[in-house]
């Protein structure tokens, strides 16, 4: 190896009195705890809650989107959503367990979700846009963001069960996952099948929630 640390540092030892004091404190308060379940179990829980919450939140507004979509469109759209839910849920779980193996950085996961959902929209709905782009789009953005709030709350509660070691990454991961739930609700509800509308007002929800997550994480980390 090109470098070796000096012996002085390698042989340094902590203050024995302080270590003994710490040992005493820990031993006096040691009680059995139940370890968190494996990552796979946590991910499955996350995805189950995601699916249930999306269905429940879309119910009052009606499932017009899924009803008017072709069978192939449904299969493609919901496969992509499920794949992204698995990826982003994995990111959330990784962030709440210290020292767990990181598969994708949360920012990369969020960008992947944005690109993949946009490409899916462009492939499924070649019509770029319709009239009243902003007037018809704003309610979708509002609904998506509103639905992301309870999801963000649940992610926050779940993350508190673990120990977050990187505030910003954790907040981006949580924000992206919550945003995906907003997109899922919009996919179930919104009957406007134009790629421009979907990319700007549906997929835009993930971009906004990820950014809001990054901002919240940065404020917490200061």
């Amino acid at each position: 190896m090109p470098f070796e640390a000096p012996e002085g540092l390698m042989n340094a030892t902590p203050d024995a009195t302080r270590v003994a004091e710490t040992r005493r404190k820990l031993m006096a308060t040691t009680a059995p705890v139940r370890a968190l379940p494996p990552n796979a179990a946590l991910m499955i829980t996350c995805i189950a809650v995601f699916v249930a919450l999306a269905a429940i939140l879309a119910m009052p507004f009606g499932y017009y989107g899924i009803e008017n979509m072709s069978a192939a469109g449904r299969a493609m759209e919901f496969t992509v959503l499920l794949l992204l839910a698995v990826t982003l849920a994995g990111g959330v779980v990784e962030q709440m367990i210290p020292g767990s193996q990181r598969t994708l950085r949360p920012v990369v996961s969020a960008l992947t979700a944005i690109v993949l959902l946009s490409v899916t929209a462009l492939l499924l709905f070649p019509v770029p846009g319709s009239g009243d782009f902003v007037r018809r789009g704003l309610p979708c953005l509002r609904l998506g963001l509103t639905c992301a709030i309870p999801a963000a709350g649940l992610v926050h509660v779940m993350m508190r069960r673990g120990l977050v070691t990187d505030d910003i990454s954790a907040a981006v991961a949580g924000g992206a996952f919550a945003g995906l739930l907003g997109v899922a609700v919009l996919t179930l509800h919104c009957p406007i099948f134009s790629s421009g509308h979907i990319v700007a007002w549906h997929v835009g929800v993930i971009a906004l929630t990820s950014l809001l997550g990054a901002l919240a994480g940065w404020l917490r980390a200061r």
């Binding site: 710490t22 705890v33 370890a35 367990i97």
Partner: peptide, 28 residues
């Protein structure tokens, strides 16, 4: 070091036997 042990104590439920110990401790 003392702060770390107290933090480890309160977060010990986040360690799983199937995972390596040192990366978990060093992350904290």
């Amino acid at each position: 070091l003392q702060d770390l042990w107290l933090r480890i104590h309160s977060a010990r439920h986040t360690y799983r036997e199937s995972e390596p110990l040192l990366p978990w401790m060093y992350a904290i």
